[in-house]
Design a protein around this nucleic acid. Structure first.
Lengths: 216, 216
DNA sequence: CGCTATTTTAAACATGTGTTTAAACTAGCT
DNA sequence: AGCTAGTTTAAACACATGTTTAAAATAGCG
């Protein structure tokens, strides 16, 4: 395996586990059994390495998501929200074939990107892969046309939060769940449970009152 | 104002903004206009400072939450989920009187604690303030008794994720929303929007199929 | 005041960080 | 073989980190 890929693989799991700030290049290179300077030689800087780790997933995921969502948008029968969100399942699980445990690390990394390093990764993703977002909002708009654009904006970010947060702590949660309920569970099981939750959240009835002053 | 409080106030906003790992003691002490060594003198270590910042909020919040939830549990009429979640609003907004922008920084800090430093803060909170969690699950159990303990476990963590993630990126989101919809919005407005979402998510119909193998 | 305990201060410490350098090594090709 | 372009290596660099030290300043009190 090439040095470049050894670095990417090691960085992948370490970033997911300990965050971008929390992982040093020395940890990465010693885990990958390559020389410290290899990162700067092959990627230029740590920041570029982070981008490369994410791009590896996004380049695989983005076209799959786009086609799955566009399929839903142009279907004969009007899709419901549960179907829209389910469109994510297969592309996400396909990451596991492309790379072992790809789903879980990718979603963890996504969560890291939102909180670590003050959202530079969010900027990177939305500017580099804008089609995923527009196709997604389009699909939701078809499935739930009554939802105003602003309300949808918020609910989609709530959904983003649910998914990303859940997956970034999924290992810990699965451990706890295994102990308390001795129910065999994996990442697919968690996805299966979170879909009804977010679908119901986005489909929630629209509250009329906003920006009101709370009574204290 | 005492040196101790100057440090706590500065650490509060810096931790919320840049994370625990991302904030140095030198940033904190220079922001607080105190000597660098003051942190170790008054708190012992950075880790203890983090605990102190969180405890300041939890000691204020925890009794309020407990009584609000216990009020709901012992009410004459059976509460619904929307009411259970709304019980959080007032105690959270009260943090703003106790400290300017207390709500937003507290929830941001909570989000940081879940992702930064590999969840040592989650351990700290669940062991130091267990009553909040048990009272909350009790209230949900009353409002939605059909929900199995395991299903509830997951949905409450989904909810945690939604709230924490939303609030930790709330400033950025509010900025975007202001621009795109020129709708005046503050932290209370965001809370007002997220409550129906999480209430609907937790109240979602129970899916019968779990742990199934996904078709590929 | 004078003494003591607490707090503040500047400096140093040891370690860890991302990055750069220049020499050594390794193909690949004529 | 000899040359070249690509890669790897160990060492050093410059700087940032949390923590400790010991002297100086400040209260608090009899």
């Amino acid at each position: 395996m090439s040095t470049k890929n050894k670095i990417l693989d090691a960085a992948d799991v370490l970033f997911a586990d300990k965050g971008f700030n929390g992982t040093s290049l020395r940890e990465i290179t010693s885990q990958a059994n390559v020389n410290l300077a290899a990162v700067n030689y092959h990627f230029g800087s740590k920041k570029e390495l982070i981008k490369a780790v994410m791009s590896r997933y996004m380049d695989e995921l983005s076209p799959q998501l786009e086609s799955a969502l566009s399929l839903i948008c142009h279907a004969e029968t009007k899709p419901n929200l549960h179907e829209v969100f389910s469109a994510f399942i297969e592309p996400l699980l396909n990451l596991n074939e492309f790379k072992e445990n790809g789903t879980s690390t990718f979603l963890q990394l996504l969560g890291r990107g939102y909180t670590d390093s003050q959202g530079f990764l969010r900027w990177f993703l939305t500017t580099q892969y804008p089609n995923v977002f527009t196709n997604f909002t389009k699909a939701v708009k078809i499935a739930y046309p009554e939802l105003s654009t602003e309300e949808m904006f918020w609910r989609l970010h709530f959904t983003m939060g649910t998914i990303v947060f859940t997956m970034s702590s999924s290992e810990a949660l699965i451990d706890i769940a295994q102990n308390d309920f001795d129910n065999k569970l994996d990442i697919a099981g968690v996805i299966e449970r979170v879909i009804p939750y977010v679908a119901a959240g986005v489909a929630a009835p629209i509250s009329k009152i906003h920006n009101q002053v709370m009574s204290s």
